[in-house]
Design a protein around this nucleic acid. Sequence first.
RNA 1: CGGGGUGUGGCGAAGUUUGGUAUCGCGCUUGGUUCGGGACCAAGAGGCCUCGGGUUCAAAUCCCGACACUCCGACCA
Length: 478
Amino acid sequence: MAKEKKVEQITDMEVDFAQWYTDICRKAELVEYASVKGFTILRPYGYAIWENIQRIMDAEFKKTGHENVAMPVLIPESLLKKEGELVNGFAPEVAWVTMGGSEKLEERLAFRPTSETMFCDHWSNVLHSYRELPMLYNQWCSVIRWEKTTRPFLRSREFWWQEGHTIHETAEEAKAETEQQLNCYADFFEQVLAIPVVRGRKTDKEKFAGAEATYTVECLMKDHKALQGATSHYFGDKFSRAYNVTFTGRDNTLQYPFQTSWGSTTRMIGAVIMAHGDNNGLVLPPAIAPIQVIVLPVAQHKPGVLEAANALRERLSAAGLRVKLDDSDNSMGWKCAQYEMKGVPLRVEIGPRDIEAGQCVLVRRNDGEKTVVRLDQLEAAAAEQLALVQKGMLEKAKENLSSHIFEAHSVEEAKQLQQTHGGFIKTMWCGDAACEQKMKEEAGMSSRCMPLAQEHLGDVCPICGRPAQKMVYWGVAY
RNA sequence: CGGGGUGUGGCGAAGUUUGGUAUCGCGCUUGGUUCGGGACCAAGAGGCCUCGGGUUCAAAUCCCGACACUCCGACCA
């Protein structure tokens, strides 16, 4: 007999991927809409994921000498406008403060859409000598961009992120920093988020406003659309000159430092949802899961069961795992479904029959695999299973990526491949923005990046027939 | 910002065409029985029908306007 549709049930991704995504965001209790359009509330479970991301990433930044700072949230209009390209790039989406109390402000203040200007202004005040370089700063904060259409994690008017900003004595050092941070992101995506990425450089059309070069890690979602995971920019000395950031060099001349910035956002949570989730809900990589192990007692009213379950929880907790015991009155089936929806990587079941046999059952979220383990081997077995989840997730995501990169030699072929399979379509390219525009108009794809690992697919641009300069990955992006 | 769709207890919906003062399922509370994959029985609580105007004896329902969510484009992390 067909059951009534359950409250917690989510739309199948094959039926409606966008609805599936929204269902997970809401029903796994990651976010809730706020009362201002386009703003979201990160709920405890969603924020806990972000905290784990922050903790791991922040430690990586610090390993390479970066320090955290906090900059003001408001930027005077005159300061924001000193660098023309940045202003033009962000002008349409800046929110302004015009009143202070009941007084109209002399100069309106921008909510930061990004903080290059604040860092430059600060550096222009504190930098004096080459001996103080490099300055390797990062901040964790939120920014505001007045987006037209919004979706949880993927595009909201306020989002949380980290923005790294550095200045260096030489261009070579700054370029090395840009590359180092790009690789830091790539490693984070693969090792922590279990999402493989394509490292590449953005075309001029797609690069950050004001940057000399923008690098990106691009990843592929389960609907075979592309998502930019993080970016790393090289600015040269453009902002230094615009904001008059100077230092006395080794040769006693006044010089402008070379600058970088790099950022990653709560959008990464959206990437995790769409790269790993399934029709039962969220699937979280153990590295960032707020709850890594859920302990479920079976027939918990029977003598000894709750005590045994509690003992498991304590042992796993002592072993350093994030573990929770659910001893609520909900049925076993309800609990299983609930924690699957929330993406808990590993479930431990223990009931009267297990206790009698001196064992418990471990169930992996990513592939449903069950393993019976002796109680005295619990800690090692749980750690092993979690490692297998992390590994299995990465392998599956790698398979999704590698099986969705296609080579095309004409716009029509590129269009057909995209429509049939989705994913990344790789072609040669002459370097002309007009050809990018043509690909957008005729095949519905934008250039995602020029991969650092270039391949030679031919000698001509398939769009215009002129000599090819670069290989480009094209895709439909979030 | 252009084009569609939607807005009714916490969630999902019925009711709107043909105006008469709100219904169902889930969830929630209490008690009891259950418990190896979304349990069952009983009794309860909970609603400015998104908001603001208008028409009417009477508006969830008709008219005008606003807002929000959502999908498809354009723009963007």
